[in-house]
Write a protein that binds this DNA or RNA. Structure first.
Lengths: 106, 106
DNA sequence: CCGTTAGTTCGACTATAGTCGAACTAACGG
DNA sequence: CCGTTAGTTCGACTATAGTCGAACTAACGG
């Protein structure tokens, strides 16, 4: 059961975090993850091909935004909220709040 | 005395803001601007050619991060702090705090 | 074992962003 | 007016990011 490498909290870069969150699709993934964790990739695909989705999860993983745990055949993703909070206090929380507020209510 | 167009506060996009701040040079400019406003472009150039610097200021301007006022021959830049705070509460403040903390002390 | 599920990796393509020199521009100073 | 200052615009280049189909992989279910 191969697992993923995740960068150490102390090695996270603010600019990489902001970059990872600056893509609307990734921001949306993060917003949805915040509502329900952990969650596999599949329900977050939003109609995109798996290879694209996989790429975006990889960006989020490398920026330290999410952790991915392999559980059987599914890959469970969760936000590294506490770690991000300790490294960049308030940043993720404020961005999540703004993302929620900017939500277009259907 | 031609002035610049600045996007309206209500039209600002979170992803554009994060994108604008995800470039290390631009983040540095914003960090320095926060310490001393308003400020012309020149002291923030950091050895780069003027055309590159101008490009980055333009990105920050279009994302709504800075306002540029033409005063005589210099262009005075300031952060749109209150507007960003009302649109995306806490976001810029948290990012600035993290940027300050991440400063490499010389 | 074999099929299925869930996701990754590869490779080719496209589009966009950043870089920088050169020419330009707008306002001031004398 | 003419030079200077401060920055913009243009254009060409390079590099990187995102997209997606195709082939692959790892674990489970029966």
């Amino acid at each position: 059961m191969k697992q993923y490498d995740h960068p150490l909290t102390q090695d996270l870069q603010l600019s990489c975090l902001l970059y990872a969150l600056s893509d609307p699709f990734r921001l949306e993934v993060v917003r949805k993850l915040a509502l329900c964790q952990p969650q596999p990739c599949a329900p977050l695909q939003d109609g995109r091909p798996k290879s694209s989705v996989s790429h975006h999860f990889s960006v989020l993983r490398k920026a330290g935004v999410i952790r991915t745990d392999v559980v059987g055949v599914t890959h469970m993703n969760s936000l590294r909220e506490q770690e991000l909070e300790s490294r960049f206090p308030g940043v993720l929380a404020a961005i999540l709040a703004a993302a929620r507020a900017g939500d277009v209510p259907a």
